[in-house]
């Protein structure tokens, strides 16, 4: 056995125990894309300590994972790449709650995570217009039936004043 072969054998023997018993732990770290979920009531306060349930795309009936929001109503989550499809995230507390859906973009160059359905509060002006329209409808209904009564046709059916 040459001197070089002896060194090689020694080197190999030194490696063997590690490979066989796997005593060493290897810890690596890599940045991944996480999802931050923020849950609020429509009055603006955060839903603190609310229960979060995540459903996988292939099984929307059983919870894939559970968690709880922090004091600011936030919950951070890393979704696996498999299975593909829309993940559902439900936040609930004391009988209130909502659900959003998140999908992982499949095409290259597409944003990795796409929130496909969330909830939003309508604009203040929009709300005011909607309230005004409902009030107008109610006022119209009230006047319609009052007019029918005033002209002496009360009890003659809904089209009495038409």
């Amino acid at each position: 056995m040459s001197a070089r072969a002896r060194v090689a054998a020694l080197f190999f023997c030194a490696l063997v125990p590690q490979m066989a018993a796997a005593h060493a732990a290897l810890v690596t770290a890599e940045p991944v894309e996480a999802l931050r979920i923020t849950a609020r009531y429509d009055t603006g306060e955060p839903m603190a300590g609310a229960q979060v349930t995540i459903y996988a795309p292939d099984d929307p009936a059983t919870a894939w994972a559970r968690g709880e929001t922090d004091a600011g109503g936030r919950f951070d989550l890393v979704l696996p790449t498999e299975p593909e499809g829309a993940w559902a995230v439900q936040v609930r507390q004391a009988g209130h709650g909502a659900m959003i859906h998140v999908a992982r973009g499949s095409a290259e160059g597409e944003a990795a995570l796409v929130v496909t359905a969330g909830t939003a509060v309508p604009h203040l002006l929009q709300r005011a217009v909607m309230v005004a329209l409902v009030l107008w409808g109610a006022l119209g209904t009230a006047l319609f039936f009052r007019r029918g009564r005033a002209s002496g046709f009360s009890g003659a059916g809904p089209d009495a004043s038409a």
């Binding site: 409808g137 109610a138 006022l139 209904t141 009230a142 039936f145 009564r149 009360s154 009890g155 809904p158």
Partner: peptide
């Protein structure tokens, strides 16, 4: 006796 009599009030209270 007069079912329609309550409708104006019901409409306003609904709003």
């Amino acid at each position: 006796p007069d079912p329609q009599a309550g409708v104006p009030r019901a409409a306003m209270m609904t709003s």
